[in-house]
Design a protein around this nucleic acid. Structure first.
Lengths: 347, 347
DNA sequence: TTGAAAGCGCTAACAC
DNA sequence: GTGTTAGCGCTTTCAA
């Protein structure tokens, strides 16, 4: 069970530590004889370098900049900030500095400005949340040109130049909602799909979820639902949804593709007779309020906190221990009801 | 953004590194003047020791022994083994050796024997899965007497002498199943609670889940269900359940408190007219087979893999970086349906 | 092509 | 009380 060190190998092979190191890192300048002897020994012993010692040598301070929408403007992003803060605490004793930069997710200019500020710092990596597709492409190019690693969460941009993506399979996410709907809504009724956001940044998100949702329900062999899609701005919602529900209808389920479910639940509660089931996204406090009294039936957890945390973890372990960064990491998609939300928020 | 080292502090305070170290570790033998000056400086600078350097100093090889039921005998434990293996790979480059020991979960003697073997090794910590309550108490005492850290997963033993527990809130787990049942089973029908296990080791488990399940459903204001509990051995199941379902009945839901749901689903599929909803535990391959074709409606994921992995992580980071071990860590309780199981198994 | 030596930041033994 | 020093395992520079 002894742990072999470079020194041990060197002694066993009758060479110096330096030579062993050259062999391990294939830096050449080693005689064939020494090369063979050391290589064989490393094999036999199954030498594992001490990653802590290796890391200590590298006294560089790594710098990661996180660029995300301001949680003060859209509370959806608060968990993301929390995940980043966890990572800050976790890694600050390991020589990794993490700075947060916020932009206004309704304003492309603020996004571009923040990126300009970050670029000046020349960090080792940036973690961006690419809510603006076109602009993101631009800034990513610049980061790449400056040899800055680019990580993303939340939005599966199919872009070159991104080192790693942490997120979820959004089509599958829609399918999950669909399966849940199928279980709790009587057959042959109408189900509303509501896209609800102040701005239409997240459209890719919403489209993929809708696609998965429809895809599942339309292929059901023995139960057909009537699916209707509405794209609404927050400001229109109140009037339009009221109008829809006031008229005679057989709407029995609503799938909201964003985290603004609470505002839908808030309207639906005025129509208790309709017995409408609601499924939407994310563990915002307001959503949980409605979940608790069963006004919302299920929430799907996109886990932005863990997305952010994990993404930084991957970067940190790459810097510290040279651990490979997986190009894509899809997190599980959590189904949340009134009884299990606690375990996800209290983490 | 500069990272201050002990050397920096020493220079700033006009003392030596040794003195700074003595202050940091409160080892005394420091003059009041020096103590004050250094303490103040540490505060001001918010000094964070470099944990990598600190860890390197400690060249000790830590040894953790994992004692768990043999997954060859009960496949429920396979994910647990996988989690341990992940941890082995993760930490073997950090000077932490992890050995696995298996026992037969139907045989207390094998449990005791394995513990005897492990004790001889005098490891730094053991991770035990306490399926045998009485015997566990005994061995834990002995480990404690030998200054061996004891961690547990899976079973919330309320025992002294255990350093940390990683698991789930089992009463809440039952409540989650109940809420799901409520949503998918018509009101006023009969719901069966089936405890199913070859041996009755897990009885605490099963009882707590039943308690939560009943607790939720019995307090519902406007829908009453008729709850019936059956404790069955695997061998009796086939005949008894068949008999029950053959007779006229209004059974519309079955909650199986263990991972052996598949064997219940296998019987229920012979009674398609009854439209019985089934909820049970864990992502065994066989369970997922039934989940996929909706013969099982929901599974609750106890995540034994993550339980094991996390528990070892906590020990490792304690040994390496002196990170505090939380006495109890309750994992979120995942709700799984035919569409989201993938994200949980593929991790 | 090779070995010796310095040093990463921290700890602890030892001498003063 | 205090400073000096050696050393953890690995990397890298420099001299041979």
């Amino acid at each position: 069970m002894k742990k072999y060190t470079i020194k041990d190998i060197a002694e066993l092979a009758g060479v110096s530590k330096g030579t062993v190191d050259r062999v391990i890192h294939k830096r050449g300048k080693v005689s064939p004889a020494a090369l063979e002897k050391v290589t064989k020994l490393l094999e036999e012993i199954d030498y594992q370098p001490n990653l802590i010692a290796r890391s200590l040598k590298n006294t560089k301070n790594y710098h990661i900049c996180v660029i995300q929408p301001d949680p003060k403007i859209d509370p959806y992003w608060q968990p993301c900030t929390n995940g980043v803060n966890d990572a800050i605490n976790e890694y600050n004793s390991f020589g990794i500095t993490i700075d947060s930069y916020y932009f206004d997710h309704t304003d492309t200019r603020s996004f571009l400005e923040v990126n300009k500020t970050v670029l000046k710092q020349l960090p080792d990596a940036v973690l961006i949340t690419p809510v603006f597709h076109k602009e993101s492409i631009e800034v990513i190019k610049i980061y790449n040109a400056n040899n800055i690693i680019v990580s993303t969460i939340n939005d599966p941009l199919e872009l070159n130049g991104i080192t790693n993506y942490v997120g979820q399979d959004l089509i599958q996410s829609g399918r999950i909602a669909a399966r849940l709907m199928e279980m709790i809504v009587p057959k042959n009724r109408t189900i509303l799909i509501i896209h609800l956001d102040e701005v239409f940044n997240n459209s890719i998100h919403m489209q993929l979820k809708e696609k998965g949702f429809k895809n599942y329900l339309e292929r059901l062999p023995n139960s057909k639902f009537n699916l209707k899609t509405c794209s609404l701005q927050q400001t229109d919602l109140d009037k339009k949804l009221h109008d829809l529900l006031k008229k005679p209808n057989d709407i029995s389920g609503i799938f909201v593709t964003t985290s603004k479910v609470y505002s839908v639940a808030n309207i639906v509660k005025d129509f208790p007779d309709l017995e409408i089931k609601i499924i939407g996204y994310d563990l915002l406090d307001e959503n949980i309020k409605y979940l608790k009294n069963n006004a919302i039936d299920f929430l799907i957890n996109q886990n932005p906190k863990h997305q952010a945390y994990l993404c930084i973890t991957q970067l940190a372990e790459y810097f510290l221990f040279d651990k490979k960064i997986p190009r894509q990491k899809l997190l599980p998609i959590d189904i949340i009801n009134s009884e299990n939300f606690d375990g996800y928020t209290h983490n």
